[in-house]
């Protein structure tokens, strides 16, 4: 019974969401909108559970004097607490403490981390991007053309480079991407049906 109830709930809601797509009746639409609201409420609670678990994990780490990660855990807890207090007391709109922290601490730090990618990509490309076999040679040529074709200097070198770059993106790259999308779609349909029909039960936890 403990495992049957979630399976029944999943079947009812899964089958309903599937059928309602083809039934534009007022009652069906109303129930559909209500279901969407429930989904968001459940998601919000899942976020809360996630945040609490994160806090618990780092609280345990922070109290262990022997842990090497202790300073990082303290920073995580302090960061979460600061943003929560700032948001709950002074709000989150323009000109608030919460917004100031976001714009002047979080945004620059994250942008800096992302910007460092340029340096690591350059270093990794030098050490790892080698023409070891035929496939690697093709990849190297395509990457070079696309890299040049997507910036103004490519056009300056030759107007053909951007055209070839566009062709690579529009034909071979897109063909591969489309194949992947079709595979994902078929896989999603199969998995969804398995979940709705109760064949796939890993989301319940356990084996």
């Amino acid at each position: 019974m403990y495992r049957r109830i979630p399976l029944i709930v999943c079947f009812i809601f899964g089958a309903f969401m599937l059928i309602q797509f083809f039934v534009p009746h007022r009652v069906s639409t109303e129930f559909y909108e209500m279901t969407l609201e429930w989904a968001q409420i459940i998601y919000a609670f899942a976020l809360l559970v996630g945040a609490l678990m994160l806090m618990k994990h780092h609280a345990v780490n922070a109290t262990r004097k022997s842990s090497d990660d202790r300073p990082f855990s303290i920073i995580v807890i302090a960061g979460i607490a600061t943003m929560c207090i700032a948001g709950l007391i002074w709000g989150h709109g323009e000109g608030t403490v919460f917004n100031w922290f976001f714009q002047n601490v979080q945004a620059p730090m994250q942008s800096t981390m992302f910007s460092l990618l340029a340096f690591f990509v350059a270093s990794a490309a030098f050490r790892g991007f080698r023409a070891r076999n035929t496939q690697a040679i093709f990849l190297l040529i395509a990457a070079t053309i696309v890299m040049l074709g997507r910036v103004p200097i490519g056009e300056l070198i030759s107007p053909v480079i951007p055209q070839v770059a566009d062709w690579i993106l529009n034909v071979p790259s897109m063909a591969a991407r489309r194949g992947i999308y079709i595979g994902i779609a078929l896989g999603s349909i199969a998995t969804s049906l398995r979940v709705i029909l109760g064949i796939e039960r890993t989301y319940l936890g356990g084996s």
Partner: peptide, 23 residues
């Protein structure tokens, strides 16, 4: 920013070429 991106891309291509020459 596009000028900076152009030179960065060219630098990466040059580095790849040097890496392959060394190999």
């Amino acid at each position: 920013g596009m000028d900076a991106q152009s030179t960065a891309h060219v630098l990466i291509i040059v580095l790849i070429a040097i890496g392959n020459i060394i190999m």
